[in-house]
Design a protein around this nucleic acid. Structure first.
Lengths: 106, 106
DNA sequence: TATTTTTATCGTAAATTAACGATAAATATT
DNA sequence: AATATTTATCGTTAATTTACGATAAAAATA
């Protein structure tokens, strides 16, 4: 099956967006922390990772804008969680991609 | 199970490296093109994607340095292929990651 | 009401990325 | 031997990313 591959394909673009969000160790670490904890404030993460609060906040923003996490304001703090829909998309898009990459070597 | 999550964990760093390589539409497109074709030279890809030859070469270099493709010199040209080991690593690391991201929401 | 706590945002600097054209090096073709 | 082809690399520019400290805004606490 020959598909014409385009840079502007929306599935390709979305996969790249998700991959880019995963493309920094701090952001993968944050996702893992969120998966382990039920309460998850910016300050909690700042205590665990060797990064400034503003840096952690920036990474959280990146993950949120990629749709991988949600952030609910709770008074002064914001409770961050994995976004089930985003994680499902991550699973399906990236597993679909890796299934497509079956070797047809030269 | 509480794992202490560290930015310097080698599995996290490797996952991030792979994800970063996937983090551009052109590079995902290139991987898909490589999966569809048996012969795969830089020039072939340049014909398909709306990018300059030097840009395609740069993206190929990024994919190769992440271990996702190989490049065998064949005379003047270089034959690029998916790297089975790299693709397997992509599959296992990213599926392991997405399995870990089971929702424990607040 | 005053103070503290928490997080987002601003401003900034350094590094990296992405794009291109030009060119060099290597091989193939005439 | 001269020319053409192919790709990697260089040099450059513009944009984006990553990090930090400082600060503002909002809510909680004293």
């Amino acid at each position: 099956m020959i598909t014409s591959v385009s840079i502007n394909d929306s599935s390709i673009r979305r996969s790249a967006e998700i991959a880019r969000a995963l493309g920094h160790p701090a952001r993968i670490a944050i996702l893992k922390i969120l998966a382990e904890r039920t309460t998850c404030f910016c300050g909690d993460i700042t205590e665990i990772l060797p990064l400034a609060q503003s840096t952690v906040s920036q990474h959280l923003k990146a993950l949120k804008s990629a749709g991988l996490i949600t952030g609910e304001v709770e008074g002064v703090r914001t409770c961050y969680c994995l976004n089930p829909d985003g994680i499902k998309e991550l699973q399906s898009l990236l597993s679909e991609l890796s299934n497509e990459l079956v070797q047809t070597c030269c």
